[in-house]
Every structure is written in structure tokens, then in C-alpha cells.
């Protein structure tokens, strides 16, 4: 029964956020941000390698460059995540729609999870779509090896998921705490933007989006090393841990402390 309720809520939330033209706008923005970048160079001793190693290197280069571009889409992602989190939480709290949700025989956990998941899914699905298009158009002749070396392709998706998860967890926390659509919208975007400015101007590598470079370096170890560098694992875990903590905090606040007037 609870599971069915969760699925019903999720379907409703997905229909709400995936309605025309939200995903289309996201796709257009992400694709434009990603495709305006230029291709890079890389040197090595290719003649001494086998054909398999060369195609592996080209796959690594394709996926590394593609994954790097997730950082290009950070600001549009922040703007739209603020809008979606506001629509899903603060707007419904302000308008009293959440009271209607609570009056149904559904747990707060199911409501929170369905709203959070729908915000995450719309951003992750559109970003992944743009990234995969870019990866497969980068070196068209090497596309087959992109499928064969699927570990790298999946790593792009994992990085996109981690970035979307962080942004959604932050914007949702803001949205629930503020309870007002305007405060949530402006506040969450301003916070993300200030963090981004601090990260870039003050060279603070532990703040996003620069913090995602650690994840990039961990997920795409240099091709001649070929395996994950475990010494980078603590740096890799910073952003997922922060995101999980924010999600847990917002979940506890939503399910136990949130009072609707």
C-alpha cells in the first residue's frame, strides 16, 4: 500500500516537473553549454602501443573531456534546480498544497522521497542525455570502443549523478527551511553562486564546482595507470558525504519538524 502510494506520488511529481517545456529548456541549456567547448590535445608514445591500447586511450580522452564538461553546466543546473526544488517544496508549503498531500494516507517519507527523486531525475536525465550525445559525437570512429569500455561511460553518468545529487540536496534543504517560494528561489541560487565564486576566485578546491575535479581525477585515472588511485578516495567522498548529510537533515526536518500553518 505504502509502496503504491510512493509510486503514485512519484508519478504525479514526475508529471509535474517533466511537463512541457521544462526538460526541453534544460536539454537546450545543457547541450549549448557542453557543445560550445573546444577539443583538446594529448601527447604520448602511441607507436609503441597496441591498437587496443590506443582505442582505450582515445576512449579515456573522450570520456575524461566529456566528464570535465559537467562543470560547465554547473550554473544553469543550479538555477534550474532552485526552480524545481521551489516548485516541489516551498511553493506547495506556501500555497497549502502540501497540507492536501499530508491529508492523504501517505507517509511523509514517501512524499519527501518522491519529490526529491523527481527533482534529481529531471536534472540527471537531461544532463546525462547531453553528455552522452557529446561523448558519442567526439570521435565518431571510436564510438564502438566507448560501448566496449563501458566503465568510462558509466563514470560520466556517475559524475553527473553526484553533481545533480549535491545541487538538488542543497536546493531542497533551502526550500524546506525557507518555506517561502521567493526566499527559496533567490536564497538557494545565491548560496550556490557564492560558493562557486569562492571556489574559483579564492582557489578553494574543497568547494563545488572545483571539488568535483577530485571526483573526476578519481573516476578517470590516467590510462597508463589504469586503476583507481585509492589515496584520492577521501577527496572523492567529500561531496557525496555532504550531499547525504544535507538530504538526511532535510528529510528529518520535513518528516519530524515541519509545521504547516
Amino acid at each position: 500500500m505504502t509502496k503504491n502510494r510512493f509510486l503514485m506520488n512519484l508519478t504525479w511529481e514526475l508529471k509535474n516537473l517533466f511537463r512541457f517545456p521544462f526538460p526541453e529548456i534544460l536539454l537546450a541549456l545543457f547541450t549549448y553549454m557542453i557543445f560550445q567547448s573546444h577539443f583538446g590535445l594529448f601527447s604520448g608514445t602511441f607507436q609503441s602501443l597496441s591498437w587496443d591500447q590506443i582505442t582505450y586511450d582515445l576512449t579515456w580522452k573522450t570520456t575524461y573531456d566529456t566528464a570535465f564538461l559537467t562543470l560547465q553546466a554547473y550554473i544553469p543546473m543550479a538555477v534550474l534546480a532552485s526552480v524545481f526544488a521551489t516548485l516541489a517544496f516551498a511553493y506547495e508549503i506556501e500555497n497549502g498544497l502540501l497540507k492536501v498531500h499530508f491529508s492523504h494516507p501517505t507517509s511523509r517519507r514517501a512524499i519527501f522521497s518522491s519529490k526529491f527523486l523527481s527533482c534529481f531525475l529531471i536534472i540527471f536525465a537531461t544532463l546525462s542525455c547531453s553528455l552522452l550525445f557529446f561523448a558519442f559525437m567526439y570521435i565518431p570512429e571510436n564510438d564502438l570502443y566507448l560501448i566496449i569500455n563501458s566503465r568510462f561511460t558509466l563514470s560520466i553518468l556517475l559524475l553527473a549523478a553526484l553533481e545533480s545529487f549535491f545541487i538538488v540536496s542543497l536546493t531542497v534543504t533551502f526550500s524546506i527551511l525557507s518555506k517561502k517560494a521567493s526566499v527559496s528561489l533567490v536564497g538557494s541560487f545565491a548560496t550556490i553562486y557564492i560558493i562557486q565564486l569562492l571556489s574559483q576566485t579564492e582557489n578553494l578546491t574543497l568547494l563545488p564546482p572545483r571539488a568535483f575535479s577530485w571526483e573526476l581525477e578519481f573516476l578517470f585515472p590516467l590510462s597508463y595507470i589504469g586503476r583507481y588511485n585509492l589515496s584520492m578516495l577521501p577527496n572523492f567522498l567529500i561531496m557525496p558525504i555532504v550531499s547525504i548529510l544535507l538530504t538526511i537533515f532535510s528529510y528529518i526536518y520535513f518528516s519530524r519538524r515541519l509545521e504547516l500553518s
Binding site: L27, T31, F35, H38, F39, L41, M137
Partner: peptide
């Protein structure tokens, strides 16, 4: 419609950013 939008947004930077690429090492 999504595929058309992707195509259009790939087309746009291909026209507006033409010839801007240079790389060196």
C-alpha cells in the same frame, strides 16, 4: 521534440563559434 532541440543547440554553437579553436603544447 527533444531530439530536434538537441540538434538545434548543437547547430547553434557550430555557427556562432566558428573558427575560434586553437590549441598548443
Amino acid at each position: 521534440v527533444c531530439i530536434i532541440i538537441i540538434g538545434l543547440t548543437i547547430l547553434l554553437p557550430s555557427i556562432t563559434l566558428a573558427g575560434a579553436g586553437s590549441q598548443s603544447t
